[in-house]
Amino acid sequence: MDSLNLEPYTVKLRLSRQENGSKYSYNKTITFFTEHLAQLCMLEKDSLIGHIKGFATDSEGSWLRVSVTDEKHPAHLEGRISGKPEYVNLILNINVLGVPADRIKTLLNDLINNPVICNSVSIVMIPPEGKKEFVCI
């Protein structure tokens, strides 16, 4: 495999419960979403996950950190979104070698619009979303 470029992609997401979402869990949705994103990234040709990490907070002060380093292992979790907030903000730092930031954005949009992933919690990107051209490795 040739050397791989790293284009870190940072995005802010807002998760809110759907009106018909009687059984919803922000913790489960964030974990599932992040693990699924890792799987999609690894389906890209010549890709390598550096680190996909997220930090979710609610207005009550609870937080959840999620970390994924490969598609085969479950996400590491720290903290927890407690209670039933109307919405949760999630920052995702996506560091995947070999996958351009534009492509990562497309994969994210596909996930956000996937009803299986977001059946009880809706997810929207909130500006400003970050894209930085960056090559270090």
């Binding site: 992609y9 937080w63 950190r65 560091n95």
Partner: peptide
């Protein structure tokens, strides 16, 4: 952190540490 918005620094602040962040690039 290479990301434009820091994550680790926010956790550290939540835990009460004095944190200075260098974001959006690499210090090397």
């Amino acid at each position: 952190e290479v990301g434009e918005i820091g994550i680790d620094n926010q956790i550290m602040k939540q835990l009460g540490f004095n944190v200075s962040e260098l974001l959006g690039g690499c210090i090397c």
